[in-house]
Nucleic acid binder design. Structure first.
Lengths: 238, 238
DNA sequence: TCTTGCCACAATGTCCGACATTGTCTAGCC
DNA sequence: GGCTAGACAATGTCGGACATTGTGGCAAGA
């Protein structure tokens, strides 16, 4: 394991030139999350470089999750971008049991996020969490696909920590799971065991009961992780 | 050959698919870390796509830390790449208080790693941890720079979990810290408060006392985090 | 024989122009 | 007023061209 320390030293050379130019322009323009970037041709014109070069820089940003590009629809900023932003590439080798490893890393993060959220959430954040919980209940009771609502609910908790890094790291692990195992959960069964717990979770967070919140999220994670591992096993067998 | 691959290329409009195509080719070619990629023109020819498209995929890989490109010198692979490998980009916004946010995410990971290591470490892993601890003691008593030994010690703990993802995520956060605040700790002072705790930590891990191990690593992290924040504050003031 | 300097080649960096594809918006129709 | 079709816009892809720079061969000299 110690033999793989070389990349850290080799990464002294960072090719951020064009990306830095773009970041400077975005900053000067005062663009933020949700705004649309100027078209590629205009970026090229204003930076005095070719469109291909602009596109490579944009591709870089896209792979870092800073922007999303839509053919014919323009480019939108989805993450904070500035000359002071930093990106951390993680390379994960996927193996047979990698899913349980990802879940093992996600678990303490989710728990800590709930712990911090319970401690520091202000009134507005608690209201957002309750709102997302109600939406989740509604979708679940209607028998629909409650996964997007579930994501929003947990995202509200992450947001309540005031630390976007939690959401980002957890989101990346989440994305990795879906990239690997793009199978639908057994929604009714999993939902029946976890959705009521979500309501309890929102309530104890609102009440500020840290220990109870940690206990509930632990139980939810155990159920979800078990279901995920079952799915992975099924995919592997099939 | 290229004619056979053309429909596949046409099917693959999205850049992620181009990257997947590249990964498949690299895998088929049996290329690994340290090897050189074929030239861009040949990649384009063999994949039946344009060179610009190849370049965008390569730029994506570069931003993920998979390859390094050298003008006139070719492209080299510096990280594992295959159709089964996964790359998680994390974009971190650097702000005045971002350090504390990074530390807030690292903390539960380090604690969970210690918890798991205490539970699952086998005899060899425990011996490695003890060995690293003894080396750390030696360097510290000699008054030298004990940070590399400290890193090795913690790496031994991460390794003992049997889950390399822990080490990777923590390592990236660590690297981000050093990229931002490249200042030396007040080593004697910080060492005096934490190094003895490291010896205790190694011993309770060897003894399998999970709760005690968690308590000790929590204390160490608190000391280190506090010192780090002091440093960051000093840099900001200076 | 070894070293050193030069030069051709190779590979990436950049730019341009063109066409294809697709989301967005608007004007006109019912 | 709502809906649809078409113009427009913006990204996706391609191929070619030249610039820049590392690599390696080759020959001259000590």
């Amino acid at each position: 394991m110690a033999d793989n320390l070389t990349p850290a030293a080799k990464e002294a050379r960072r090719p951020r030139d064009v990306a830095q130019l773009l970041a400077a322009l975005v900053e000067a323009e005062g663009l933020g999350v949700g705004d649309r970037l100027p078209p590629e041709v205009e970026l090229a014109r204003r930076l005095g470089i070719g469109r291909s070069t602009v596109r490579e820089a944009l591709r870089q940003w896209e792979s870092l999750g800073i922007i999303t590009r839509n053919k014919g629809g323009g480019t939108r900023i989805v993450a904070e971008v500035s000359t002071r932003s930093l990106h951390l590439p993680l390379t994960v080798q996927i193996e047979a049991d990698s899913l349980s490893r990802m879940l093992a890393v996600r678990r303490p993060l989710e728990i800590e996020a709930v712990r911090i959220a319970t401690r520091v959430a202000d009134e507005a954040a608690r209201r957002r969490i309750m709102l997302r919980m109600l939406e989740l209940m509604e979708v679940f009771d209607a028998g629909g696909d409650w996964r997007p609502a579930d994501r929003d609910f947990h995202a509200a908790i992450h947001e309540a920590t005031g630390n976007p890094l939690f959401a980002k790291v957890i989101h990346q692990i989440h994305r990795a799971f879906h990239d690997l195992y793009d199978a639908p959960f057994d929604q009714p069964q999993l939902g029946a065991s976890t959705i009521p717990a979500h309501r309890d979770l929102a309530e104890v967070i609102a009440a500020g009961d840290e220990e109870k919140a940690v206990a509930i999220i632990s139980g939810i994670l155990s159920d979800v992780d078990e279901a995920a591992i079952q799915i992975a096993r099924g995919l592997h067998a099939g």
